[in-house]
């Protein structure tokens, strides 16, 4: 046992300082396409390559609907006119401002994760929130095994048909006030699966979503940012065009 203690101590502190400091380590986030201007109106190649309609055209400007982006890189690779990508991960958007936790309670929030048909990537990123690198416990977030104690229902996946009932039951089992957080493109709009005979078009179909975290999958930092936002630990400064925000204590 003592060897484990020594091992742990020798590893030192690897935890990110986010949200107090910026986190820009390469590989922590895939980033998102940037908003581009100055594209000839007839040149529709780039946006047509986007399989989910995340890029939309407004005259000579290419807008990004970040909740639709699934990081397929088709707008930046294998095309004549690649559009640049921008780093960052602060993509979360609050849909219901009233759901932000009041100041007195914001440093202890319990999260029940529900996998509603997730591919495993979002869940893995959620799991990594407990990783020493991210360690969400330091900010007062805890994953709980029962929705009875949960403040936040964190849902990933497009809501597969068979998961509708369990998801609703988990939501109903939560004490009020209930907050629902949709994580990942699938949970926001069905992602690559979309509405169909066994998949829905996201969590909003059956539950009121309070905060959305885009990404496919959103990296742990993006989820952490979302958690801080809903907990009221950060101020929400939407900048949807670039999909980036400044972290602020």
């Amino acid at each position: 046992m003592s060897r484990w203690v020594i091992k742990g101590i020798r590893t030192g502190i690897v935890t990110t300082r986010y949200p107090e400091k910026k986190e820009e380590t390469p590989g922590t986030s895939p980033g998102l396409p940037e908003q581009v201007t100055g594209i000839a109106p007839e040149n529709r190649e780039t946006e047509s390559r986007c399989p989910t309609g995340a890029l939309s055209r407004e005259k000579n400007r290419l807008n990004l609907r970040q909740e639709r982006c699934i990081h397929c890189f088709r707008c930046s690779r294998g095309t004549e006119n690649p559009i640049p990508w921008k780093n960052g991960f602060e993509w979360a958007e609050i849909r219901n401002p009233e759901a932000v936790v009041p100041a007195s309670l914001r440093h202890s929030l319990h999260i029940r994760v529900v996998d509603a048909g997730d591919c495993g990537a979002c869940l893995n990123e959620i799991k990594l929130l407990n990783n020493p690198y991210y360690n969400m416990h330091r900010l007062g977030f805890f994953i709980t095994p029962t929705p009875r104690q949960a403040d936040i229902l964190l849902v990933a996946g497009p809501v597969a048909e068979h998961m509708k009932t369990p998801l609703l039951k988990a939501y109903e089992a939560m004490p009020a006030p209930k907050r629902v957080m949709a994580v990942g493109a699938c949970a926001l709009n069905g992602g690559v699966f979309g509405p169909g005979f066994v998949t829905g078009s996201g969590v909003a179909d059956i539950l009121p979503v309070d905060i959305e975290i885009p990404g496919c999958p959103p990296p742990p930092l993006a989820i952490l940012h979302g958690l801080c936002l809903i907990a009221g630990q950060l101020k929400n400064e939407p900048n949807a065009a670039t999909g980036t925000r400044k972290g602020e204590k």
Binding site: V114, T146, P147, R148, T165, P166, K169, A170, E172, A173
Partner: peptide, 12 residues
Amino acid sequence: KIRQPRWDGGVR
């Protein structure tokens, strides 16, 4: 007051 059935892991 809301009465909820026991949490059963979401089984149908």
